[in-house]
Each structure stands twice: as structure tokens, then as C-alpha cells.
Nucleic acid binder design. Structure first.
Length: 461
RNA sequence: GUGGUUUUAGCUCAGUCGGUUAGAGCGCCUGAUUGUGGUUCAGGAGGUCGUGGGUUCGAGCCCCAUAUUCCACCCCA
């Protein structure tokens, strides 16, 4: 049989013990805050029916869905198909009816609709699971990555927006990352579109100005010119989105600009409410900034939208995002349920913490606290006492192991101690032929002869 | 989907104009330093040069295809 070089699919990664410890540290930090704010966990399947997923993320999103090939007589099915297959997409739909989930929000909406009778609204759930996108991998972008979402459905109250912003603030403070939380409102964007050229241009304008950070004023105006916008329309647009000042001043100035847009004024009111109350429930000042050029791609947002970026480090893209969607469950047949949610990008947060060296050092410790080194080269050595000690240590909840491999007779302790130090096990118990026990602290090198009880006592601290 | 980039020892990487037996550092293994991590010394193992074709007397190096890495665009966490 030919030997095969092992590999994993493009854009996926293995995680070793150290990496898992770091990822769990992030997950735990996030989860604790979610729970503190009254959110309950749910989990949904890795795969969803494609009918659940398609059409929710736009044309671009549909292309990025991983489809799961149907099992069974697919060929027969195609042969019997009365329809002419006109393109790849139609073919794909014939041979696949399931797909890997693309985010956690759409499966959640599906869950809410299917369980609407059991759920008490407003329903606050969190969910931390991997999602898959058939994107080209690059910096901060993976084909398999984890999202940590908290959403509230069944409430219009802006108090939830306040909670979610505070969750962002608390989590990133807990992780020691300096972040800027940007906020905007889809209704404000609608108002801007209305005033500048007409509400039907909302999406075009939103997509273009979202790039302002990246390609600058000139890039955006060039793009809009090519799309048929006049110079005065573009100037008018920039006058609005580049308003400067304190948050209150910006909102006042915008109010004048959007005085002819009812929807725009509603959006401004919502932002004003949030800024008025955001610092009331926490002692920490929140680094929340309005940014009228923030648009966010997903088309289902209808109210406030958020995006979080790290202030330091080379990762320019967002490490979190979210917003309000008034009718997400509508597409699954349940109207009038408003939702608002946020998402944390675990993998990007990991990259930021790694680059800025912000992981706590305690995470890199070994799994065991102590290694028992018994000289197994001596034929008649009595192992029962050390095995008994091992059991006692474990009963006390002290992570322990015994060195199991053949040792060098001349240097009976070399291998075990090398093993312990390379695995970052902090203590060794040395058991020799005269059947005494020594506890050695591998960090300081200090060792002393102790009884079994004394050893357990020392290791409990 | 578009454009670029990477791939050589376990790891990080050299490898000239296409020319004899493909190298270094680190790591690993064995031995010495007279019971225990380190240092030093001596020795050793380890390669289908990503894969498949092609050009050539001759390919790690040139050409084609393909996979893969990383990066930018699109889009997004």
C-alpha cells in the first residue's frame, strides 16, 4: 500500500494542547460574561438544510456555503430530473440538500421559529460553536472558525443594545485587549440614502462608504462616480458621514442634515438613547464611537449595528460585530419578532492576543503537577507504596503521573526528570531503592525527604 | 472568483550559471564528564528537494499541470 502524506483541508488547523488551553481561556472569559448577563446556552447541528441557509447571506454568501453531498442514488436523481440543469448552482442544489452552517444567527432564527411555543420571550441565548465558509484563507480568515454569539429575540427594547455593548466592554477588558466599539444605525444609513439620492440606493451607498477606512475618500468617490452618482450627491454624502465632534454634537448636526427623513431621525433618536445611558450601569468608561460610515455587509440588520476592532496589533479587520434585525424570523414564517445580537470572533481574538502577547503565563503550565520517579530498573523494587501514593494524590485532586518508560540504569533519574521538565511538570517525587520519598521542586531544584502525608500536604498548596 | 507568494532533515532556513556523493543552525539518539534537568566534549541517525508530467547527456534549479502556505482584492469574524 502506498504511503500517504497526511494533510488537512485548506483553511483548517489542528490545535495542540497549548493552543487549546489558550482558546479555552478566551471561551471561558466570554462565557462567564454571557452568563452574568442572563444568557442561556444552546447548540445547533453542524449541518443545516440548504433551504435554511441559502438566500440569507446574499449572493456572495451563497457561494461561500459548504455543501454536503447527498448520499444515495444521486446520479439516478439527476437522470430522472425533468429540469434542464442550466448552471453550476442548479447542479449543486440537485446533489446536495444539506450544508455546513455559515454563522450562528440564522440557525438560531430557525431554532426560535421551531421552538416558539416553548420559548419565553424575550429569549436571551448564547452559542459558541464553529462555523464554515468556503473563503480563500488569509490573515485573520479561516475556513473553519468559531463564533461566540449572544442574541436577544422578542424584544424591541434598546436596553438590550446597552447590555450587549457592556458585554463587549467587559469581555475585552477581561482579555486585556484595548478595543474601539463602533456603532451606527441602519435607519440613519437609510436616512442618508434618502437625503442624498433616494432610499433605493441604500445598499450601494452602504457598501461604498463601508470602505472609507480602507480606500479613503477618493476611493469611495471614484467608486460612486462609476456607479452614476453626481459630484454634488457625493459631496453631500461626505458632508454627512464625516461630521466631527463629540457624540452629542455629531448627532445634533446629523439631525439637521436628515430633517427630511423620518426614518433617519428615528435612527438618531436610538443612538442618542444609547449614548445617554451607556455609562450609567458600569463604572468603566465605554470606548463607544459613532461612525456614520459603518455599514456591515449582512443585509438583515435594521437598527443599531456594531463592530469591534482592536486598537493595537496588525489585524485590521473586526474581531466582533452585531446589530439589530427586526424581522429575521419572518423568512421562516414568524413575523414581528425583533432581535439584536453580537458576535465574537474567537480565532481573530486569539490572533490578537498572541501577537500582543496578552495570554496569561499560567496557561502554559503542564497538565500534571507532579511526576513520580521510581527506579524501575531494580528487579525487586516494591512499587505498591508509590502506586498507593499516586492514588492518594489523585484522590486529593492533584494531577499526577508516574514515569513509565525504561530508564538508564547508571542514571536512573535523568530521563524522568528531563521528561518532567520538558512537560513543565513543576514537582517530582523521587523513590529509590532504600524506599524513601523525596519531593523535588523542579523550578528551584530544592529537594527534601518527606513522608507520604507531608508530600500530599505540600502539593495541596 | 481575481492577482501574487511559499514548499529542501523533526523545526528554522541556505543551496551560485543546469554539472560529481544536497548543506548549516537548532532539536533528537548514543557515550563521557562517578547518582538529578544545565554546560562542555566525542560520535550517530535522519532527505523520493510538495506531487505528476516534460525539456536535457545531466534538473533542487528551466517549462506545464496540480496540491499546499502565506498575502492582497472581493467579501467577512
Amino acid at each position: 500500500m502506498a504511503k500517504e502524506k497526511p494533510s488537512i483541508p485548506k483553511g483548517t488547523r489542528d490545535f495542540g494542547p497549548q493552543e487549546v488551553a489558550k482558546r479555552k481561556y478566551i471561551l471561558n472569559t466570554i462565557e462567564k460574561v454571557f452568563i452574568k448577563y442572563g444568557f442561556m446556552p444552546i447548540e445547533t447541528p453542524t449541518m443545516e438544510n440548504l433551504s435554511t441557509l441559502t438566500g440569507k447571506y446574499g449572493d456572495e454568501g451563497d457561494k461561500l456555503l459548504f455543501r454536503i453531498l447527498d448520499s444515495g442514488e444521486t446520479l439516478e436523481k439527476i437522470r430522472n430530473s425533468k429540469f434542464e440543469i442550466r448552471n453550476q448552482n442548479e447542479f449543486n442544489n440537485l446533489i446536495a440538500e444539506k450544508g455546513l452552517r455559515y454563522d450562528l444567527t440564522v440557525p438560531f432564527a430557525r431554532y426560535v421559529v421551531m421552538n416558539r411555543n416553548e420559548i419565553t420571550f424575550p429569549f436571551k441565548r448564547y452559542q459558541m460553536q464553529p462555523v464554515w465558509r468556503a473563503d480563500r484563507p488569509q490573515k485573520g480568515r479561516y475556513r473553519e472558525f468559531w463564533q461566540c454569539d449572544a442574541d436577544v429575540v422578542g424584544s424591541d427594547s434598546l436596553l438590550h443594545e446597552l447590555d450587549l455593548i457592556n458585554i463587549y466592554q467587559e469581555v475585552f477588558k477581561g482579555l486585556c485587549i484595548d478595543v474601539e466599539i463602533k456603532i451606527n444605525n441602519r435607519k440613519v444609513l437609510a436616512g442618508i440614502a434618502e437625503v442624498v439620492k433616494g432610499i433605493e440606493h441604500l445598499n450601494t451607498i452602504a457598501v461604498a462608504i463601508d470602505k472609507l477606512d480602507k480606500i479613503g475618500k477618493e476611493g469611495v468617490s471614484k467608486e460612486l462616480t462609476e456607479l452614476g452618482f453626481t459630484i454634488s450627491e457625493i459631496e453631500n454624502l461626505f458632508d454627512i458621514i464625516t461630521i466631527k465632534g463629540t457624540e452629542a454634537e455629531m448627532l445634533e448636526a446629523l439631525k439637521l442634515k436628515l430633517q427630511n427623513s423620518f426614518e433617519g431621525l428615528v435612527g438618531i433618536e436610538e443612538l442618542a438613547f444609547i449614548f445617554k445611558n451607556i455609562n450609567s450601569s458600569t463604572n468603566e468608561p465605554t470606548n463607544l464611537k459613532t461612525d456614520f460610515s459603518l455599514a456591515r455587509g449582512l443585509s438583515y440588520y435594521t437598527g443599531c449595528i456594531f463592530e469591534v476592532a482592536a486598537m493595537e496589533g496588525s489585524l485590521r479587520s473586526s474581531i466582533g460585530g452585531g446589530g439589530r434585525y427586526d424581522n429575521l424570523t419572518g423568512i421562516f414564517g414568524l413575523d414581528g419578532v425583533s432581535g439584536v445580537g453580537i458576535s465574537f470572533g474567537l480565532d481573530r481574538i486569539y490572533d490578537v492576543l498572541e501577537e500582543l502577547k496578552l495570554f496569561p503565563e499560567t496557561l502554559s503550565q503542564g497538565s500534571s503537577k507532579v511526576l513520580i520517579c521510581a527506579n524501575n530498573s531494580i528487579e525487586n523494587i516494591e512499587l505498591a507504596p508509590v502506586l498507593q501514593l499516586l492514588g492518594k494524590l489523585r484522590n486529593e485532586g492533584i494531577a499526577s503521573e508516574i514515569y513509565t518508560e525504561k530508564i538508564n540504569v547508571k542514571k536512573p533519574l535523568e530521563k524522568p526528570i528531563k521528561y518532567a521538565s520538558s512537560k513543565k511538570i513543576p514537582y517530582a517525587i523521587i523513590y529509590t531503592e532504600n524506599e524513601t520519598l523525596k519531593l523535588k521542586n523542579l523550578e528551584t531544584g530544592f529537594q527534601e525527604e518527606l513522608s507520604m502525608e507531608e508530600i500530599i500536604e505540600r502539593l495541596q498548596n
